[in-house]
Design a protein around this nucleic acid. Structure first.
Length: 283
DNA sequence: CCGGTCACCTGAGTGC
DNA sequence: TGCACTCAGGTGACCG
């Protein structure tokens, strides 16, 4: 599901809709979604004021309480996690299917008084801890800078230091964070680079082109509120960037640049879409 | 260090 | 219709 543009959209939506609102209570319908002890999670967040929300790599960061001295909730949505607004589940039996955690919002309109975490596949996790521990959390998770947080020189250094194939290296969140299967394929196509190329053999010109294309694609995808392939949506509906995909999900169709048939193969364990002519792919 | 495979879960699509 | 099987925006553990 969510990669950088989708997570950014969700974080922006949460910030816009809920900054300054008090969270009166927290209910947990499926404890495994929450890291550690569910009671401790609830105790950390219930009664706090939601200060704002942002994105860290593919994580949604929600800040509570006083600036710098408050609590942060870090949410990783994995494949099917999403946030939406709905009725507060007064008892565990009142949770709607696939809703697992609820945050009761003070002063919200009827039927919208809860922020709900929904996750069909239940791969996602919510973590709550003091905000001062955020740097350590990021370090422990091995989260590298995203494509907007490094320059061409640093990007080149990071990619070429790895021995693996280019697609695998782009998906490595320690090297560069935020790209997932869709935007890795789209960026490689736009840059005319093969997913199976050795990352260590890339030239300055190639890594520079790749970074520029990745940034442009991510920026356009954020403007379109992300890509909805199956069931992703922000707080208010699906994204539209899937309409602009050039290769992802288009196997068997013609390359929009050269007319060659788009192929799909497994690279780095993931379905990988490419134009064999534009990207000079050798499988 | 690297690649491959499975695990975590559920649902949608396909082919028989 | 039903059933078996594959695949899916991600990562993390384990094995060779």
């Amino acid at each position: 599901m969510p990669e950088l543009p989708e997570v950014q959209t969700i974080a922006d939506d949460l910030d816009q809709a809920l900054a300054g609102r008090a969270i009166e209570d927290v209910a947990i319908g499926y404890p495994r979604i929450v890291d550690g002890d569910a009671g401790e999670f609830r105790r950390l967040l219930a009664g706090q004021t939601l200060r704002g929300a942002g994105r860290v790599a593919k994580w949604v960061a929600v800040f509570f309480g006083p600036d710098k001295a408050g609590t942060v909730m870090m949410a990783h949505l994995k494949m099917t996690g999403q946030f939406h607004l709905g009725p507060w589940p007064a008892t565990p039996g009142d949770f709607q299917p696939h809703d697992h955690v609820a945050f009761k919002i003070a002063g919200a309109p009827a039927g919208q008084e809860a922020l709900l975490y929904r996750d069909i596949r239940k791969f996602g996790r919510l973590y709550a801890f003091p905000e001062k521990d955020l740097p350590a959390f990021k370090a422990r998770r091995g989260l590298g800078p995203d494509p907007f947080q490094l320059d061409g020189e640093e990007f080149h250094r990071r990619l070429t230091a790895k021995k693996g194939r280019l697609k695998a290296v782009l998906l490595d969140q320690a090297v560069v964070s935020g790209l997932g299967n869709i935007y890795a394929d789209e960026s490689l196509f736009a840059a005319g680079l093969s997913p199976t190329a050795k990352a260590s053999g890339l030239t300055e010109a190639e890594t520079s082109r790749l970074l520029a294309k990745a940034r442009a694609i991510l920026t356009a995808a954020i403007a379109a509120r992300g890509s909805t392939v199956n069931n992703y949506q922000g707080l208010s509906g699906p994204g539209a960037y899937q309409k602009q995909h050039q290769v992802y999900g288009r196997e068997g169709q013609r390359c929009p640049v050269c007319g060659e048939t788009i192929q799909k193969a497994t690279v780095a364990g993931r379905g990988t879409h490419f134009c064999p002519r534009c990207q000079k792919v050798k499988i």
